[in-house]
Design a protein around this nucleic acid. Sequence first.
DNA 1: AACTGGTTATGATTGCGATCATGAGCGACG
DNA 2: CGTCGCTCATGATCGCAATCATAACCAGTT
Lengths: 197, 197
Amino acid sequence: MIAIMSDDPFDHIPATALRPFAVDAGQPLFRRDDRPTALYRVDAGRVALHRVTEDGQRVTIAQIGPGETLAEASLFADTYHCDAIALTETRGVAVDRAVLRQRLRSDPDFAEALVRRLALQVRTERQRAEIMSIRSARDRTFAALACFGQSGTITAFAASIGLSQEACSRALAELVAEGRVMRLGRGRYACRSVPPR
Amino acid sequence: MIAIMSDDPFDHIPATALRPFAVDAGQPLFRRDDRPTALYRVDAGRVALHRVTEDGQRVTIAQIGPGETLAEASLFADTYHCDAIALTETRGVAVDRAVLRQRLRSDPDFAEALVRRLALQVRTERQRAEIMSIRSARDRTFAALACFGQSGTITAFAASIGLSQEACSRALAELVAEGRVMRLGRGRYACRSVPPR
DNA sequence: AACTGGTTATGATTGCGATCATGAGCGACG
DNA sequence: CGTCGCTCATGATCGCAATCATAACCAGTT
């Protein structure tokens, strides 16, 4: 199938306006109260967003991995509202904020792609939050499997839904016993649900 | 303070294109596989989004309350990917999908407002998900207080971060004892953090 | 084939939060 | 003022998932 118009808003930005970036583990991408300069897309590595309270307690707001963007909301804010620190060696591309906002107003295709991307993000995050609110490990595991499927390892899957690997493994075993989930092989499971879109 | 340009994208839509809706508790707003016709903003009440698996298990994907919108992602999809059922008597306004998409392409102010709204949504939901992944009730409560503050009752606050009212109350008591949180009065707490934006 | 490192599975124990239960604080109303 | 209804606080108990520990399993390497 041929994509007539890319889903990735970054593809609508001229390469000259894209600035590659790379930071080592522990290094900041930006800091709270800095003036926002760009929107970042992570291609490899992982970035944590921290907010620091008045008395120095650090609260992790989010973690951003490959394919995701950060600081979307800062496109319209006067300052960054949190610190962005690379958890591992991280690289990606940045789009200048002014270029992006200008583009948003002048290029309908870009605007549409950006809105689509953000809308999907919202949906995904809402699902995550809702799944995390399920108390029972069995039900939570099932819901996650039904919504997202299992892409990587069990360990990663478990972590992404806030369960220990053991609890997740046990939950999967129970679900298979109940016939609600299929075991495709060692460490590979799927749920007989309507396929996620 | 005078708002030069409204933050709410719905304010950029001519009133003639807004269609009020109301549904009773238990009634559907739309169903999976329906063709998407509109974007909905809930003004009062609560709507649950469900996905039903092949063997009839129902999974709640999200719940939408006053001020929030649903089915943003369906603006670009061929069908709805889930059922929307009113949990309580619910009312709000709907914008026709074609009108909205057309507007997105032709009205930069609207596009910007929509992107801003979605970006904020993403940020908020990411925060929620991250907070929900904190295991300790005390730390989770603190993080939530630092990020969002406590708007309504303790009970509602506790529910919004996946804790029982009792666990939350106890956590708050501990945090006060540790001096990390201030008690403003019975059932009213705040954290000495940089104020959320 | 033997070795190695990483992942998955499963058993045993423990700690934390849900739940149940109850009392105290506080606003609304007649 | 006294009653009612709701929220908050706190104590007691119990169940579930985290944690620790270990074995089975698998892929890649030599």
